[in-house]
Design a protein around this nucleic acid. Sequence first.
DNA 1: CGTGCTTTTGAAAATCATCAAGTATAGTGG
DNA 2: CCACTATACTTGATGATTTTCAAAAGCACG
Lengths: 251, 251
Amino acid sequence: MAQLRTRPMVVEASRPMDPCAGCEARPFSVCNAIDIADMDRLSALAVTISVDAGRTFIEEGDVAEFFFNVTSGTAKLFKLLPDGRRQITGFASMGTFLGLAVSSTYAFGAEAVEPMRICRFSRTRLRGVLDAFPAMEKRLLEVASNELVAAQEQMLLLGRKTARERLASFLVSRVTAQIAAPIPAMPHQGTPRVALPMTRSDIADYLGLTIETVSRTLTRFKGERLIDIPNASAIVIRDLALLASLSTGLR
Amino acid sequence: MAQLRTRPMVVEASRPMDPCAGCEARPFSVCNAIDIADMDRLSALAVTISVDAGRTFIEEGDVAEFFFNVTSGTAKLFKLLPDGRRQITGFASMGTFLGLAVSSTYAFGAEAVEPMRICRFSRTRLRGVLDAFPAMEKRLLEVASNELVAAQEQMLLLGRKTARERLASFLVSRVTAQIAAPIPAMPHQGTPRVALPMTRSDIADYLGLTIETVSRTLTRFKGERLIDIPNASAIVIRDLALLASLSTGLR
DNA sequence: CGTGCTTTTGAAAATCATCAAGTATAGTGG
DNA sequence: CCACTATACTTGATGATTTTCAAAAGCACG
C-alpha cells in the first residue's frame, strides 16, 4: 500500500480576486448551483490547497471539520480494516464534492494519486451558505443520489462479477467518465485512450482483487486484442463494445 | 431466486382522516422533518399500499414515477445481471425512504420479503412539497449521506472480507439495527435474538456469497457457541463481542 | 401425510490468492 | 549521461477459500 514520505501540505492564503470566478472545475461542481452574482459568498469561505501525490488529506475517523471540492488531479477514497486490508470506494477527480457525512467524523480516508488542487470549506460555515441557497442543498442531494447509484453498481461488481467482468467494467467506466467529464477530451475515433493515474494496487483495491489478478487480466485482454497497454498508466481501448458486453457477463 | 406467483397489488384509496397522524413509521422517517401542522400537505399526496410477500413493487429500469416510504414489513433492494446473478444492495424496513434517483428510471428493484405497508408519493408532486419545506430536503440529504456511508461499509465487506467476517458483520448489523430502530425492542440481556425475515438466498445475495456458504458458516458459528439457530428465520446471539471483533478480522 | 420448498451437508472443481522470482520503469546521484 | 536503487509491474507455480454439483434432511401447508 503506497506510502510516500509525508511532505507538509501547502496551504496558500489565496484570494487574488475571486478564486471561484475563473475556476475550471466550477462547471462540473456543486458550486455551479449558485448564481455567479452570489458566488462571492461562497468564495469567501473557500481556501485553495495543493496536495502532493501520495499525501493523505482526509483521515478516516478524524473529526470532519471540512468539506472539499476537487479542482484538479485525482484522489482515491478508501476504507481500511484493522489488519491493513483496504477497499477503495471511489476515485475523486475534478468537480467531485467530498465530505458528505452526517456523522461528526469522516467515514473514509482520501489520498492524492497525482498532484491535486482542492477547495476547502469549513463545514460549520458552509452550513450557513447552504441555508441561504437551497439550490445548492438541492444540488448536493443530486450529487449524493448519483453517488448512491454508483455505489450500488459497485456493490453488484464486488459481490457478483468475475475478475474479467470487473476489469472490463472498470475500463468501460473510465472511458465514459472521460467522455462525460473534465477536459474536452482528446479526440477518440473508436479507440479511446484512458489514463490510469492510479497504480495496479489501487485498481486491485478498488475492484476487490489482487494486483496479480489485475495484471494478468489486463495482459489477457491485450492478448485478445481488446486493449493495448502502451505503458502502465495508459490503456488504449480497441474494442469498447466487446468490453462493455463482457462487463455485464454477456461475453 | 425467489419467484412467487404474481398477485395483484392491493391499492387502497385510504384517507380516513390524516393517515400520517397516527403513522407508526413517522418517528423513523423523513416525514418527521415536516411540522405536524403542515403534515396535511404531505398526507394529501400519500397513498397507502399493501404489498404481499414476494411481490416486486419496484422494477429496475422502470420509469421512476414514485417515491416510497416503508411503513411496516421488509423489502430487499437489488440489482441484476443479464444472466440472473443478483446483488442485494440493502434491506428496507420501517421508516426507510426509497426512490432517490436523479435519473428518470429506478436504478434498482425492490421486492417484499414479508408483507409490507408502504406510502407512495408521486415524484413530481412531492417535488412541490420539497420546495415548500426545505427542512425535508435537508432531511433527505441526511438520509442519502447515511446510506452512502452504509454503502461504503458494504463495499469494504464485499471487496475485502472473508465469508466468516461477512456473516459476522451481517449479524452484528442486524443486532444494532434492531436496537436503534423500530419496535421498542424486546429486552435482550446479553443474548439478543435477531429476526431474519429474508431467506438464506437473500442473505447470500446480500453478502456476495452462495447459500451453501451462508449455511455452512452459520452452522460453524453455532458449533463455536457464537450463536444459536432456533429456526431458520431467527438467530440468538450468544457472543456479540466476539462476533463484532470477528467482523473486522480481529478474530 | 404427501408435496414442494428451503436448508443443510458432502464431495469435487475452479477461480482467485499467495508465494516467489524476474523484468521494467523512474527517480537519484555520481 | 549513465549506472544504481527503489518501486511498480509482470509472470509462473502452488494452494486455499469458496463455488458448483449433488443429495439428503427439515418444514410448512394443503
